[in-house]
Design a binder for these strands. Sequence first.
DNA 1: GCCCATACTTTACGCGCGTAAAATTTATAT
DNA 2: ATATAAATTTTACGCGCGTAAAGTATGGGC
Lengths: 352, 352
Amino acid sequence: MLGCLGRGVIMTEHKIRNMEEFSAKCGVSRPTVSKYFNDPNSVRKSTRDRIEAALEKFDFRPNVYAVNQNRRLTKNIGIVVPFVADPFFAELARNIERRCIDAGFSPSTFSAHGSVEHENEILETLRSMRPAGVLLAPLGRASDKRKIESFCENVPTVLFDCNIEGIGVPFIGSNNFQSVPLMVDYLCRTGEPPCFFEMAPVNPNANKRRDAYRLAMERLGHEPKILRVEGQGWEFESIGYGGGMRAFAEGGFGSSTVLCSNDRLAIGLLAAAYESGVRVGLGAGCSLRVAGHDDHPFSRFTCPSLTTMAQDYKAISERSVETLLALIEGGSADDSALSGLFDGHLVLRASA
Amino acid sequence: MLGCLGRGVIMTEHKIRNMEEFSAKCGVSRPTVSKYFNDPNSVRKSTRDRIEAALEKFDFRPNVYAVNQNRRLTKNIGIVVPFVADPFFAELARNIERRCIDAGFSPSTFSAHGSVEHENEILETLRSMRPAGVLLAPLGRASDKRKIESFCENVPTVLFDCNIEGIGVPFIGSNNFQSVPLMVDYLCRTGEPPCFFEMAPVNPNANKRRDAYRLAMERLGHEPKILRVEGQGWEFESIGYGGGMRAFAEGGFGSSTVLCSNDRLAIGLLAAAYESGVRVGLGAGCSLRVAGHDDHPFSRFTCPSLTTMAQDYKAISERSVETLLALIEGGSADDSALSGLFDGHLVLRASA
DNA sequence: GCCCATACTTTACGCGCGTAAAATTTATAT
DNA sequence: ATATAAATTTTACGCGCGTAAAGTATGGGC
């Protein structure tokens, strides 16, 4: 490729193979270049300029594998969500990714796709990646608690969205005991007190929401009514649909207001209502009100649009990353003291 | 940790630090162990058994960074989708991931989150990962064509879902010229010929679907009617909703049947119809039929449920991975000859 | 002008493993 | 039993970079 004739007319820049060659082009020693890549501000401005000038001409990048092999701690951060096909988690992951990049780390996102086996595989993979830290939203009840626990002992980890209680790991999530009562209160003010529509709980959030519902109802002097539908897995819409169809066939919910454990369940229920000829909403001719929880990205586009409790995506992702970075910096500081729960806010739409 | 008293009662298995130590525990040489990890069947059964026995006792795993540094080609495969918050892509990615793992590779999935900058970042990251191959679903029109082209020259790549034409890279996707005419034909048989509802095309698929619609209509002796709505970005539902609201306000679509360029657009349109008091479906009292394209995971739960063309997820993911593996094996074989388009099938639901 | 802190260079070692070549063992065929 | 092929061990080198130590250059303050 490079002409040997020595004409020197067009000196084809032969590819830089390693940091040694690159440092030669800079007129700077390799260790200094190495220092530069670890922290550009750790070298004098004049040398920084020389390196960056050469960087534009040759676009060299240190070999990630060699770098990570030799660093005590890699700059990798693992992000694990239970089910990325749920736009709620996709959105959360996107936010978190961005923040990690901005903090100078290299995030890699994994989805357990709803399966424990896959979640365990991911933890194994993550282990061998020796990440600086991990942001983990576990499957929940289905998770292999011991594996997660032993993982957290070896890798700085922050749990988000779904807690695994009693393992002393920081947790960032939503405050269900604030959000659910707020919704219950709104629903009671504006119509018949709601019943609670849930599936077999996949995680602590589901349990807390039910408990919060019960408490809120009792505090308002109403009798809680809980309707649990069958079904498992992560096809919540399908479960909500099936449960809805059966309830409508058997004569309704025992209340003209239904508070769903989450939006996806509500989406299924709305489909069932539509198919059953039950008009949902506030207007005349409507016989049912439906509310959800989470402000799922699609809840704006349901028919009718879904009244729901918005989780504070931004705060959760921001605080999760902050907490992890603090954990990475400060060694293994006091753990669960770093936990944080965020309030949600009411999103009033047409369904309730 | 390890008692120094020599009692030997409980010999705490001190952590294996590297392959050297591990091979000692096996009573096998390190190069042989190395061979084993590259291909367990490349060593004699007796030694394989010894290694695997030790493997259970010490759960040693080769350092991924050291491995990848020294191998000519890593076992990594990059998977890139334009927007993972779209469950369609999440589903595709999940399928592809699984197949890569089964083939003995380590997939990492990335989402461009709808932004070119992010897509380019991902390509850079991917480059420094020196992957064996990459499965890339580009953003489409928004993509930086030159960067993708230069990337494909250096890394074995298979495009899926969305083609970048004229760069000689294998492409696996859906056959829009089969699927759209099929839908058009069905709609014409059962009611008024459809108009076509689209947004500014984000990728070649959108263009092809429109062209296929036009052709199909002309072939059936009907006049094509195309309604393009404004809006950009990846919030298709929102665009469909906005376009729908305006169309209903201005007196409809010029046909009582609307074929949408994709399901997400249709989901937005259905929301607009509902809000505008327009009944969608086949039954009495319905004034509009709506059909989509893709069999989006949520299209079962729209109100009414959405009649659509199902893309063959399984075939696309399977063939994409197969093609990439062939590309990896056979060096840079004849490229675009490996392309493949798959037929879709009609999914009849309540909306049309 | 000297002193000293800082930044840099040189030199050197190690990380954990792939991989090649040569010597040796083991299994299979004759 | 002997020849032959296959598998394994030994030995050795290299990958690209982090990092430490010791020496050299740089620059600011007095």
